[in-house]
């Protein structure tokens, strides 16, 4: 887990360094109003790396070592159940079409959203019932 967390923390560090640099260079009054957007976005890059990166770091110190991080691991050491995967499911399709209908209401008026939200409710219920029987996201 350590390398994964480092990768995300590098992203975060880069966002912080460049963000500060960008902000400092942009202090010139000519540019002041324009750079604020860029500084905010680079700050967001910093946070985007920091949140999952620090979580992985926190978790990597608490979890038991994984066979995929062990350079000497044999295939047998990872054998067994990896997880429960849904074999087939109609609900992603229903959810996708409901999202499409909801978004199309931005073009054609709110009537498509009525169908869209109805389908979305059906899909959410369907996914939850399916997950109760077992299945990853």
């Amino acid at each position: 887990m350590r390398n994964e967390s480092r990768l995300l923390l590098v992203v975060s560090l880069f966002g912080a360094v460049i963000g500060v640099l960008f902000w400092a260079v942009g202090l010139s009054p000519v540019y002041a109003t324009i750079t604020s957007g860029g500084t905010i976005m680079l700050g967001a890059v910093c946070l985007l790396g920091l949140l999952p990166g620090y979580y992985y770091h926190w978790w990597s110190r608490r979890m038991s070592p994984r066979s995929e991080d062990d350079p000497e691991a044999t295939p047998e050491s990872g054998a067994g159940v990896v997880g429960v995967f849904p074999g087939t499911s109609i609900w992603p399709f229903v959810l996708g079409m409901s999202a499409l209908l909801v978004c199309l209401s931005l073009v054609f008026g709110f009537w498509t959203a009525i169908f869209g939200f109805s389908l979305a409710i059906a899909a959410v219920v369907g996914v939850i019932l399916e997950s109760r029987r077992g299945g990853a996201i």
Binding site: F85, W91, P92, F93, G96, L100, V127, I137
Partner: peptide
């Protein structure tokens, strides 16, 4: 060496959003 993507149903949802968006 994985059996599938980590979130198979989310994966399917991505495709349907992509197809719907593209046709739109």
């Amino acid at each position: 060496g994985a059996p599938d993507m980590a979130f198979p149903r989310l994966n399917a949802l991505s495709y349907w959003l992509y197809l719907g968006g593209g046709l739109t």
